[in-house]
Design a protein around this nucleic acid. Structure first.
Lengths: 260, 260
DNA sequence: TGACTATGTCCACTATACCGGACACTATGT
DNA sequence: ACATAGTGTCCGGTATAGTGGACATAGTCA
């Protein structure tokens, strides 16, 4: 039988968690299986075990499932061991206050840009991001730093084609992404406009640990129209924050995760 | 071959995550395998995939692993969908302030009592608990409520024998645990002393959702010596907090996880 | 030097977990 | 009444993943 290639259980579980995370809401198991393009029987079987272990929780009157309490507990334990987030929080808060724009702490998580911490700016309306939010690397300013020094063949393997598209339209090519990345590394900061959202721009700067590895990045997100007038100011603010966080980081314990 | 019975990959992965969570620090893979009593080759194989997907992160110079950034991201997404924690936080903070003791929001996660949120009291020293911390149900005050209405045979299956022990010494029996639970349900609150720690006592009260299911519990933790003089006051404070949280909960959206 | 422990990789075997497909039960609409 | 779509369970076959054990390397102690 060569039909639908058989996948490993662990792989399916990760797909389940990622799928729920992307949809951001409880789903019925059937819907989940369809969205994942996985066999219904497999998904039913796996969700049953995951529910038992509180890795998933059931919502509503039992038909829907979502990420569970145990994942929250694991996340808390992670935070306890990973000093960076706690160190950066006050700095990010200050950035948002001083600039009036949304400031974010981001990281490369399984080849997506993920928001570890956000402080909102002053703009009353407009598109909100949440901690835990996940975006394609090629469409983000921080993504320019996360691919620094990584081989092109690996990038091709790990970053899916869809990540270069927004609403079915290609926004950028791999070549351009690589060129952007090199330029960002030289300048020390990265600017993008209109990629992840047509009316949003972003400025980002990397956070490097003592061994010189880029572990996270900080950045602002704001309406594209504000870019020209404020780029220099934002870069200046970020540079201060960058050195502050890096100083705090090298004073703290040695145990920081090494980016894989 | 009947030697070490072969286990499912998913089961092993959960064991890995739980083991790291219990130890609360990065571990070398060998050590991890030994602690889990699982085959080394299996644990090496699984950790490799988990590291690739950021479900584990490697620490130090690469030899040690711990819970990864992706789990943090999942945890954030959970919190976004689960209103209870946000609703309860200010109330727990107030409890700690008014009482001077540590106040906690707890839940039954995979048959352990887990701390979802803590507010520290005034006592300068003494044993700290962390959000994400995990304790045996039979040794906690909140545990009395989490087993309400659950069949004894299921409890025997799911709560391991070690959970009745502290430092190799049995602190309580299943029978007594069940009797405590019934009493707690009648009184509406639960008190234990000297179980999880010889010098600590706790008072707890359940949080019930609209359908009458116990979803979490709130409680104080303090030196045993303070129990006699303060029990009535603590119960009073908790009762106020309980009704406040339950009111907020039933005003919020319908989507609360149903405890499995 | 040798003996021992700790760490990580690799390979072949077989128990079993994933999968496809059938079945049952509800709606809902026509 | 029938048809269709959505949901959940169950079962047998086979591709494969978990396992035991061998192997390699590095460090430590006597």
């Amino acid at each position: 039988m060569v039909k639908g290639s058989r996948e490993r259980g662990l792989e399916r579980v990760i797909q389940i968690l990622d799928c729920l995370h992307e949809h951001g809401r409880p789903m019925v198991v059937n819907e989940l299986a369809a969205a994942m393009k996985a066999p219904r029987s497999t998904v039913y079987e796996l969700t049953k075990t995951l529910l038992n272990r509180s890795i998933l929780d059931s919502y509503g009157d039992g038909g829907r499932v979502f990420l569970g309490r145990k994942l929250f507990v694991y996340g808390q334990a992670f935070q306890e061991e990973y000093p960076l987030i706690g160190l950066a929080e006050p700095v990010i808060d200050r950035l948002a206050k001083e600039s009036g724009e949304r400031a974010e702490l981001c990281s490369n998580v399984d080849w997506k840009q993920s928001i570890l911490y956000v402080a909102e700016g002053q703009r009353p309306f407009g598109y909100k991001t949440y901690p835990g939010g996940k975006y394609p690397l090629p469409l983000t300013a921080t993504g320019r730093f996360f691919i620094a020094g990584i081989d092109e063949t690996i990038l091709k393997e790990r970053i899916p084609d869809e990540d270069y598209y927004l609403n079915g339209q290609q926004r950028i090519t791999l070549e351009r992404f690589l060129a952007d990345s090199r330029e960002a590394q030289e300048k020390g900061y990265s600017v993008v406009s209109g990629l992840v959202d047509p009316y949003l721009a972003a400025v980002a700067m990397p956070i490097t640990d003592r061994s010189g590895r880029i572990v996270t990045a900080i950045g602002f997100s704001f309406p594209s129209g504000e870019l020209a007038a404020n780029e220099a100011r934002f870069v200046h603010l970020l540079r201060d924050a960058q050195s502050e966080i890096e100083a705090a980081l090298s004073n703290s314990s040695q145990r920081n995760p090494t980016v894989s």
